[in-house]
């Protein structure tokens, strides 16, 4: 268990470095939902190219790591262990897509980049999505048994 916390801390620092590069070099906030959403709805405009390159790195490097290492803890192939209930997956995807664009940010934009800037909006968003997430797990997992 504690080894997972160390992996978490080390991975977290790398995520923070990624955000620092995107901010200090490119002058942008590293928010996954904003980067993807702007491409989906066409609002990215002249930024589209650099966003696509960002996504190539975000998708490509873990793909290579998963092929070379498998699961990071060495328990076999890399997996997400997501539920096989596709109805739940579709509902969750829609909620995440609608919600992050409405709130203008997700775990990376509001959470990592917002909290570190002491942004009141980032902190408030994080409180709401964590509370809703906890509430969701209680309802969907413990009460309804969907996942």
């Amino acid at each position: 268990m504690q080894i997972d916390w160390l992996f978490g801390l080390a991975g977290g620092v790398i995520i923070g470095l990624a955000g620092a590069v995107y901010l200090l070099v490119n002058g942008r906030i590293m928010g996954a939902s904003g980067i993807i959403g702007g491409l989906v709805d066409g609002s990215a405009g002249s930024q589209a190219k650099e966003r696509i390159w960002f996504l190539v790195g975000l998708f490509g490097v873990p793909t290579v790591l998963a092929l070379l290492l498998g699961d990071i803890r060495g328990d076999g192939p890399a997996e997400t262990y997501a539920t096989s209930n596709l109805a739940a997956v579709i509902i969750a995807g829609l909620l995440v897509g609608v919600g992050t664009r409405m709130a203008n940010g997700c775990t990376s934009g509001h959470g990592v980049c917002g909290i570190s800037r002491l942004s009141l909006r980032g902190i408030a968003a994080t409180v709401f999505y964590i509370m809703a997430g906890g509430f969701g797990v209680v309802i969907f997992k413990h009460l309804l048994g969907w996942v």
């Binding site: 080390a10 991975g11 977290g12 790398i14 470095l17 990624a18 790195g57 975000l58 990376s108």
Partner: peptide, 13 residues
């Protein structure tokens, strides 16, 4: 930056 982000997400679990 995207590559580092992906690496961090992968390592962190």
């Amino acid at each position: 930056s995207g590559g580092l982000f992906g690496t961090g997400l992968f390592i962190s679990g």
